[in-house]
Simulated assay, not measured.
Amino acid sequence: MLIWERPEPSARASLSPLSRDRIVRAAIKLADADGLQAVSLRKVAAVLDAGPMRLYRYVDTKEELLDLMVDAVYGEIPAPPPEGDDWRAEVRSLVRGIRGAALRHEWFADLLGGRPHLGPAALGHLDATLTALRSAPGIGDDPDALMRALQAVNGYVLGAVRHEIVELRAERASGLTEHQWQAAAGPYLARAFAAGRYPALAHVVGNGSHQDPAEMFDAGLDVLLTGIAAGA
């Protein structure tokens, strides 16, 4: 039986009472501080001042714990405000929520993708996204068109968010901000461009608006949603 259908054990009087919520919150705190490699049932038990075997009354495996952590983060994402017939605004709100959650909890991006998450908050977010996309021109009740649109949105969000997280981690590892790294690499690229190499890249670097990550995320999403509307 999946953990989503398994009742939580009744509470016991103890110096360190446990619940799935306390276990999950402790695990999220560990992951936020030191990444997913810092999360284990033994380490969570130590944080909660409880024996590891006690945790197995609530969670059978680390995989179940990760599922619970992912769903807790999905639960932080607010439902989109009613936008009437503006399906793009609703999709935009939902995927911005994913990006915001990943920036608060970088490990969350590492667990996105693959098979759908089946927790109630994750399924609610998925259903809200499908509902919004269903209102796009030409999709309606066509399940295949709806799934193609969903895969396109999920693929964009996963790639964009992971790219942003990788850049943040690289910045911390190198000790250089994005601007500092660009300044260090600038002379090398300038010489390559002056020699006539990489003309398309030279055009972008020399003439682009250099948007911040949030603006770039929204701009790319708008391109995708325009394509969904045009291709339906």
Rank of each mutant, 00 (worst) to 15 (best):
Y198L: 14
V39M: 06
A102C: 07
M53D: 15
A79Y: 03
Y56P: 02
E106R: 11
A50Y: 06
V47Q: 14
A202D: 07
Y188I: 09
G75C: 02
Y74F: 15
A232W: 06
P187T: 08
A173E: 12
L150N: 10
L225I: 02
W87F: 03
M53K: 15
L2V: 11
S174P: 04
D67M: 05
L111P: 03
D60C: 07
A101N: 14
G35M: 13
V70L: 09
D49G: 11
A122V: 02
P143T: 05
A79D: 10
D127F: 14
A194G: 04
K29G: 13
T61P: 00
V166F: 08
E106W: 11
H210Y: 10
A230F: 09
L201A: 05
G138L: 03
A46C: 07
I23Q: 04
L130D: 03
G119Y: 01
P9F: 07
R96N: 10
M53Y: 11
Y74V: 00
D21N: 14
D127Y: 13
P213K: 00
N207A: 08
V205E: 09
V73F: 01
L2G: 09
E8C: 05
D144A: 13
R96A: 06
A13M: 15
G114R: 12
A122I: 03
E8L: 11
L2W: 05
G113H: 10
Y74H: 06
L112P: 00
A101Q: 01
A195V: 01
L118C: 12
D21M: 11
R191L: 14
A170G: 13
G206W: 02
D60I: 05
